[in-house]
Design a protein around this nucleic acid. Structure first.
Length: 614
RNA sequence: GGCGAGGUAGCUCAGUGGUAGAGCAGGGGACUCAUAAGCCCUUGGUCGUGAGUUCAAAUCUCACUCUCGCCA
């Protein structure tokens, strides 16, 4: 029985490079979860894309004198490169700047309006007569009315850190041309969150039993203490999605409102690209489907409150508006396993201070799986965590290399030397030549200690799998690593290097068992360490790969061209079940899976922190 | 100031009522297939503080305290 699983991954804002905190916060856990679900045989759809709209991007484009599109495409290209190098297997990684996303967002808007959850309200906003337009808060500077600092922005004062009401700014001036703006009335659409508060609270309470405490308690606490109030979903801006309404040409849908719709629009775009336009319904309207949202804690409000509110608000009207057909309600999030933050050497990661480790830069010096390993064992699942370069080196050398890499290497190289590069046959040599041997299941000859080891390792398919399904990835990886220890212990007890001198059949049984254990561990670790599991898979003599392939594609629509990352599933998918390694199989020449790192690199890497601007 | 999360071995963290755990680091030992890796033994904690509930509390309640985050 296969289940549709939607793996909805946070949309990176296309105005900065991705750092290790972003990776461990949402992108990496999503990929681990998705890879497991695919191995398990479930129907996975993992989608995301670049968040291309909003003022941070227009601010950057103004500063550089290029179009917002140029800015977003530059960072988007970096995302695609990083995801391919790190092996983040998105079924589709698109962008919010596509004709499809525009259409889906506008349909959501219209469906909410039709259902009575939108209203308009007039508010005051700075208007520049010389520029002839309303100014977003970030585009106004002046004196902070709290601390008196003169360089405060309309939305926030960088001196005292307070969030400001821009209309109270003293001596306001337009950032763009220095002109003095005036307050004018402007009308906006609001999402009537007050009306949706009851259903949203009910949605959260139904999930309180299994959601992470920091996600559900925070959301419920916030609603109970402050209540939900209407929130503007349009703003005066010319970059973004037009409001589907006569006379609203100068306004755009607010980013917070439309970016989350990407989870839905990307599923729809994926379905269209796959040549099966209705296929998105499997994840979005079927009752048995589950949607997991992988995000960082800064996004909790939007995914645990706002997005559910939008989905509850459109109800079955979305399909009606979008497809003109009778529709079912859209599925609400099943889980939002938000992660906390990762600090860098005990300080907050900061792009402007160059305090952090950036994904693409890291991969110019190190391999992807050690990064995936370290980010998983330090994943901030319950509280903030810390990246420490000494710890990175230690864990790479003492855990990844010593416990697992060395285990694979010691068994494979021993086999290669003593059994001519083939899996030893568990049949006793006396039976091997006889005619009947092919009919005898080789497991029959395994000794109790062999069966015991294999049973312990095979139990990992349940225990590791259960942890992953509960999105406890640190625990899952820890369990898999513990099983590596079991195999190391078994080898020490059996000592095949001694057996081989006195009783080659016994040594053969030991090595056969150890190889099969490694073949299992390769799968148990594959969601976490896909590159090296794939390499080991190949050394064990398999030809069909465990996982599928990523590729990019350029799509043309009315907005122009956008590049997406896609995924082609493996022809013969891997399976989340015990190995049935057969004797006699030819192995490939083994090579170490991981490299030991010099402890000195910790100092070298720390020296890079905070250095010259990127 | 309000809300949320956290404060458990030197370090990173598990552990939500029943005699304190893991990994790493530290100390000792036997082995040698392996990336001087692996294996065995071992040192180490009054579970932030105080009180309460209970036959029994790291685990529940209350107060206090420190850290981080969000909001005001």
């Amino acid at each position: 029985m296969t289940k549709p699983i939607l793996v909805a991954v946070a949309w990176p804002y296309a105005n900065a490079d991705i750092h290790v905190g972003n990776l461990t916060g949402s992108y990496l856990p999503a990929d681990i979860f998705a890879r497991y679900q695919r191995l398990k045989g479930n129907q996975v759809l993992m989608v995301s894309g670049s968040d291309a709209h909003g003022t941070p991007i227009t601010v950057k484009s103004d500063a550089e004198g290029v179009s917002p599109e140029t800015v977003y495409k530059r960072y988007h290209a970096g995302f695609l490169e990083l995801f391919q190098k790190l092996g983040l297997h998105y079924d589709l990684f698109s962008s919010t700047h596509t004709q499809n996303h525009f259409a889906v967002s506008q349909a959501m808007f219209l469906a909410l309006k039709k259902n009575g959850y939108l209203y308009t309200e007039s508010q005051q906003q700075w208007f520049s007569a010389s520029l002839g337009k309303f100014l977003p808060d970030r585009y106004v500077e002046g004196t902070c009315y709290i601390c008196g600092f003169d360089g405060a922005r309309g939305d926030q004062c960088d001196n005292c850190g307070n969030v400001l009401d821009s209309t109270q700014l003293i001596n306001p001036r337009a950032k763009e041309d220095g002109s003095t703006p005036e307050l004018r009335d402007t009308t906006h659409y609001f999402l009537d969150l007050g009306k949706l508060e009851g259903p949203v609270v009910q949605f959260l309470e139904e999930r309180q039993g299994y959601w992470r405490a920091n996600v559900v308690n925070r959301s419920l606490g916030w609603i109970r203490s402050e209540g939900l109030r209407g929130r503007p979903i349009t703003r005066d801006l010319d970059w973004g999605i037009p409001v589907p309404e006569e006379g609203w040409d100068s306004k755009r849908l607010y980013v917070w409102f439309e970016a989350v719709i990407g989870y839905l629009s990307a599923a729809i775009e994926w379905a269209a690209l796959s040549g099966e336009p209705g296929a998105w319904h499997r994840w979005w309207t079927e009752a048995g489907a589950r949607a997991y949202y992988f995000i960082g804690k800064d996004n909790i409000d939007f995914h645990a409150i706002m997005w559910p509110a939008e989905l509850i608000g459109v109800a079955d009207e979305f399909a009606h508006t979008f497809e003109g057909a009778e529709g079912k309600p859209l599925n609400l999030p099943y889980d939002v396993p938000a992660n906390e933050f990762l600090n860098m050497e005990d300080r907050k990661i900061s792009g402007s201070r160059n305090w952090g480790v950036w994904g693409l830069d890291f991969l110019t010096r190190y391999d992807p799986d050690p990064l995936r390993y370290y980010l998983t064992v330090t994943m901030p699942e319950t509280s903030d965590a810390n990246w420490d370069w000494d710890d990175f080196v230690r864990r790479n050398n003492n855990e990844l290399v010593a416990t697992w890499g060395n285990l694979a290497n010691r068994v494979l190289s021993f086999t290669y030397r003593h059994w001519e590069g083939k899996v030893p046959d568990p049949l006793p040599s006396s039976l091997r030549a006889s005619e009947t041997s092919e009919a005898i299941p080789s497991d029959r000859f395994l000794r109790p200690q062999d069966r015991q080891l294999l049973a312990a390792v095979e139990a990992g398919f349940d225990s590791v799998g259960q942890h992953i399904e509960n999105v406890k990835l640190r625990a899952a990886l820890g369990e898999a690593m513990r099983l590596c220890g079991e195999v190391n212990r078994y080898l020490d007890e059996q000592a095949p290097w001694a057996q081989v001198k006195t009783d080659k059949d016994a040594a053969g049984l030991t090595i056969y068992t150890a190889l099969r254990a490694i073949d299992n561990l390769k799968l148990l670790l594959a969601p976490f360490l896909p590159h090296t599991s794939e390499a080991l898979h190949s050394m064990l003599g398999y030809h069909a790969p465990l996982f599928g392939e990523q590729y990019t594609e350029r799509i043309n629509d009315d907005l122009g061209e956008h590049e997406v990352l896609r995924y082609r599933a493996a022809a013969i998918p891997g399976h989340w079940r015990p190995s049935t390694l057969e004797g006699g199989r030819a192995l490939r020449e083994p090579a170490p899976l991981y490299k030991k790192l010099e402890p000195s690199i910790a100092d070298e890497e720390r020296a890079r922190l905070g250095g010259g601007a990127v």
